[in-house]
Design a protein around this nucleic acid. Sequence first.
RNA 1: GGAGGGAUGGCCGAGUGGACGAAGGCGGCGGUCUUGAAAACCGCUGUAGGGCAACCUACCGGGGGUUCGAAUCCCUCUCCCUCCGCCA
Length: 426
Amino acid sequence: MLDMDLIRKNPEEVMAALSRRGIEPPIGRMLELDSERRGLLTEAEELKAERNRVSKEIGQMKDDKARQEKIEAMRELGERIDGLDAKLRDVEQTLNDLAVEIPNLPDPSIPDGPDETANVVVKNVGEPKQLDFEGLPHWDLGPALGILDFERGVKVSGSRFYVLEGAGARLQRALISWMLDLHTRQGYREMYAPFMVRGQTLFAAGQLPKFQDNLYKDHEEDLWMVPTAEVPLTGLHMDEILDGETLPLRYTAYSPCFRREKMSAGRDVRGIKRGHQFDKVEMYVFTTPEEASDELERMLGHAEETCSQLGLTYRVLELCTGDLGFTAIKTYDVEVWAPGSEEWLEVSSLSNCGDFQARRANARYRAEKGARTRHLHTLNGSGLALPRTLIAVLENYQQADGSVVVPEVLHPWMGGVEVIRPEADT
RNA sequence: GGAGGGAUGGCCGAGUGGACGAAGGCGGCGGUCUUGAAAACCGCUGUAGGGCAACCUACCGGGGGUUCGAAUCCCUCUCCCUCCGCCA
């Protein structure tokens, strides 16, 4: 949610910033509504002040006749107030409906562009691996190793579902544990948060109302499956005023993620790159406006470290205005190279959301005693998405004999399995 | 799922129609006293919106209603607690 005060004071600036996203928000209409709102508010409040004043008098009046007259007058006044309040609610609702649909303002520093083709590669680490044998894509490699079963996934749950088994399931679990431990060492607090949340929490994270179509929901209760751990983590400090001393708050959490993927029907249907359910380890930070920008760079470093410790070739992209997410002011994507399917896989997306989510969450802080409250700034980043990391590990570490070597950092969780072979049934 | 009891400021807790934005206590901040600290005493100590100054308005779990006037009465929802049932 944008700051209405900012829109009021710098409408042209806001329009210009949003036009970089290729959208033309109804700022003019919002200014009208805002002005109308304030007019109604002032009027209603003046009448309420009078009613409060006279009502006090009524309570102390002895003369019954004069008293009845006042009561009658106040009854009429009350009706006028009711009318104004109703109009006010209506205007506020209309204004709010427009406001919640407007995305965050892109950071001035990020590149302009219509879509993902205009994203800028800002860093390359390592060379895309050339296998000196005929490498397999993971959708062939996994089933051949007996660790990935598409048919049974589909039988059980339908398209875009799969089953990991044996060393495959264990490898994913190893990755999760290792990542959580790594982020803990990097200064994040490990959290285990609900995988189902209320609508209010999704609103705070910027998922509702706009992205309702991508979410799974219980059919009779206000409970939704999370599309990312970012959602419950954003909700942690809803309606709180944090002490500035405690900042930054850095959290890491594992969660499954549930997405309908209606928008990408028919895309990436092969393999485990895009499913309705996938696992992810998330990093999340609540901090001050002053620190947010640096914090994004730090978080990027932490995601990069995850890739490099796994020995993966990766590159960092800075998203252009046209590819920027709804809540973000600036986003980096981290992509790893998968030599079997021969493509770059987005394993992490790291965003600075400014105060956009914090406004929706009513999450504030006070820098010091007596200071005014300010909205927190929030950042989120994957560290990393599991299926794609799994793809990269399998495809990068595959050997000519069809086996897969387990990256050394994962050994502590693999129960002695250092090479995954077709016959190895762990 | 059944029965009952609750939700008040950072915390505890009083308050059943007007004098209540809310007693009292704790905590916190400032001051007096003290070499310093403690104790004692005095004062201050919620959030938001509008004017941006005095001031006004709203908020006692959320929403709606009754009333000239609601923390207080009514309806409804949510959450918490106790007992019973069921259950990984």
